[in-house]
């Protein structure tokens, strides 16, 4: 009797795992295995993806990587990109979200408008934006010309390519951020705002002393997601510059570099090493960011 019960319980446990199995297998095959494999490949000198052969296990790939000017360029481009895109996007979407939240009229229209970029394919948006950036016929240069600014070769001049990418990405990331900020704003009790009115709080103080602190957890989340996504920027580059990394690699990013090394140059080891470097950067930043957020929470 006792024995039978134990068996039954064990069988029930197995059944649970059976339900989980499909997703677990997919996760293992497509996420966990490649992760470990890439990590291993990064230490294999002259790794061949065809027969899995390599010369030796060492740090050669990492030495090659940091000696490669293109990688250093990708790293600095990505850093500049992150430094501009994340704060600007969050600030802009926060202000827009508050404006949308406070305006009673046209709320539905705005909700459709700001969500469009999120549901549209990046490639399609990229093509539209490459026209907006067009130096001769583009909308952006037309508006600038109204202020007497001469035409800027956004996509053809290495000096402007990264700026164009940043503008495009800020615009594109607004949708998601505005959405989560709006849901955050909706959850703040109206009574607190009424109390603030009774307390004669000036408008800007309401924003900085009540709205922002109340949205803090959501802002922390948005910054974290923004950082991770910004470091992984690739689609935007690919679509804006028609599958190139801008004129003379001027807008190359780390993920674009990884892709290029892997598929075009066949430097699998170096590509894996770059991926590991990116992984470590994101991991460290996430941890730092989380500990700062936690410290503030406790203060």
């Amino acid at each position: 009797m006792q024995h039978n019960q134990t068996v039954a319980r064990r069988l029930r446990g197995c059944k649970g795992y059976l339900y989980l199995a499909p997703s677990l297998i997919i996760l293992l095959v497509f996420t966990v295995y490649p992760l470990i494999k890439a990590f291993a490949m990064s230490f294999c000198e002259d790794y061949s993806i065809i027969d899995g052969s390599f010369k030796g296990i060492n740090l050669q790939n990492y030495q090659d990587l940091f000696a490669d000017e293109v990688f250093l360029k990708a790293l600095s481009n990505t850093t500049i990109y992150v430094v501009f895109v994340v704060p600007l996007s969050i600030l802009l979407s926060l202000v827009l979200a508050v404006l949308i939240h406070n305006s009673l009229r046209g709320k539905a229209l705005f909700q459709t408008l700001y969500f469009l970029p999120y549901v549209t394919s990046v490639i399609a948006i990229g093509i539209v934006w490459s026209w907006i950036f067009n130096s001769n016929y583009g909308l952006l240069n037309y508006f600038l010309s109204l202020f007497g600014i001469p035409a800027i070769p956004w996509l053809n001049d290495p000096h402007y390519a990264l700026a164009a990418l940043i503008i495009f990405s800020i615009w594109k990331s607004l949708a998601f951020n505005i959405l989560i900020f709006l849901s955050g704003l909706a959850s703040i009790s109206q009574e607190i705002y009424q109390a603030a009115r009774i307390d004669s709080t000036p408008r800007l103080r309401v924003f900085f002393k009540i709205t922002v602190p109340q949205l803090r957890p959501i802002i922390v989340y948005a910054v974290l997601m923004g950082l991770i996504n910004a470091f992984k920027v690739y689609n935007e580059v690919f679509s804006l510059f028609q599958s190139k990394a801008g004129p003379a690699n001027s807008a190359i990013t780390v993920v674009y570099y990884i892709y290029d090394k892997f598929y075009n140059s066949g430097d699998y080891g170096v590509a894996s090493a770059a991926a590991v470097v990116l992984f470590v950067i994101i991991l460290v930043l996430t941890m730092v960011q989380k500990s700062i957020a936690k410290e503030k929470e406790e203060a």
Binding site: Q194, I198, D199, T201, R216
Partner: peptide
Amino acid sequence: IPPEDREIGLVFQNYALYPH
């Protein structure tokens, strides 16, 4: 006259304290 200029104190049912 708007509430901010009425020189009143109001205690809300749920107190509406600033939680942060």
